[in-house]
Design a binder for these strands. Sequence first.
DNA 1: GAGTGGTCTAGACCACGCG
DNA 2: GCGTGGTCTAGACCACTCA
Lengths: 262, 262
Amino acid sequence: MSSSLPPTTEGTPPGAGAGASTPAFSPLYQQIKGLILHSLQHGEWKPGEAIPSEMELAARFRVSQGTVRKAIDELAAENLVMRRQGKGTFVATHAERQVQYRFLKLLPDTGDARVEGPAQRTILECRRMRASAEIARTLALRTGDVVVQVKRILSFVGVPTILEDIWLPGQAFKGLTAEQMAHYQGPTYAMFELDFGVRMVRAEEKIRAVFPDETQAQWLNIPVATPLLSVERLAYTYNDVPMELRRGLYRTDTHHYHNELS
Amino acid sequence: MSSSLPPTTEGTPPGAGAGASTPAFSPLYQQIKGLILHSLQHGEWKPGEAIPSEMELAARFRVSQGTVRKAIDELAAENLVMRRQGKGTFVATHAERQVQYRFLKLLPDTGDARVEGPAQRTILECRRMRASAEIARTLALRTGDVVVQVKRILSFVGVPTILEDIWLPGQAFKGLTAEQMAHYQGPTYAMFELDFGVRMVRAEEKIRAVFPDETQAQWLNIPVATPLLSVERLAYTYNDVPMELRRGLYRTDTHHYHNELS
DNA sequence: GAGTGGTCTAGACCACGCG
DNA sequence: GCGTGGTCTAGACCACTCA
């Protein structure tokens, strides 16, 4: 409702004296994109729901449909919304059949993933604790802030394949239990959306080859001298706020990490 | 010149009798995109060169500028061309400063890559041979077809970090020498463009954790019991034609494989 | 100042999904 | 048949680059 924006040459704030001269011209559709993003962040429309039609948004923001269209195009390209012709534009969610396990790039060497079905989850641990300096820094918390730590095993066709440690900000994940982690059907990230209103939007991974320690080897039921993929993932919500640190050990004797470059 | 296409509802070829009823409606801008792609493939404009302006292309294909624009937008999104405001649209190349080593995702753990500078290359081997069944299948050749095999080491600040085997179709890479591999300044893929007219457009990687064999360990100057990243890359030119198989062993004690998910 | 890509608009029509 | 997103057009104006 705070609208009626003419094509503003915004940027360079009023008091920008001798600073760096970034012209910072912001096209209208970017401003519209920002407004839609704001509504997304603040839960005006929930994951899976439809957002207003392009015509409605155009009317709301007093711009043409084409401008709204371009804003939504970018949001769709970033996987924040999903367009479906004839139906509408929907807030993206990790709960959809098609794009389930969007962030899991481990595939079986032969055959397709669907045949294996989803992973079986074994929760080893789920506790609240104070963040170490390292964890705190990574999650943009203060040392000693409460975090939830979850340790779990993912098995495919009965074979333990992934051993994961997950750290979550305690504040946003109040009341997360081992039962919840174990019994929710579908991707963990879908449960995060549903039960905690936390939507993971993008992530970065750092991958190395390592050995497990003795405990880890036992959990995965392998010799300590097995080379494993160490996958450290930092997942972000809107606005580049880190919300999950995940350290995984992947067996790669029957599976591989798959990546597309372009 | 073979133009003047009205918005054609093409697809469903004339003789498509009882087959699957894929409606396959193809929008005009997709057809334009196809035409531009065809010119790209056939070298009408070389890597680094500008393609005709949007207006020119619109005139050539007898469509509006907006339609050409949308076609080019997609090509730009796929990294096949690069737009530069005020200058024009350019055929993408691996030779550009900014996006150099586009397909190499190994980064130093601390500091940025620029400080390290480009890798030093040591060519261990460069020979023509007959393709094994496996190599042939992967490169879509026939068993026994000639391939070029290159074995090399990439070192960062003097430390051997990557050991690579590269296989290339012999036909397209006639006359490739070890000297060429060693002495070309800049990305290998830039040399492929310049000297052989082969542009790598996308790639897929399969990543595993493995041990080196004894020879490999010697080349990398590490114990055989060092866990390494095995990175198998299949790189494609236009039209999804595979043109390079690359098997790399990456040390990850000082570097890591970096990936962005969204 | 000419030329290029980038933005914005307004209106027409098309393909799709659903009642 | 209606509403949604998707395509296409034509024209105006803006920002950037370079001579």
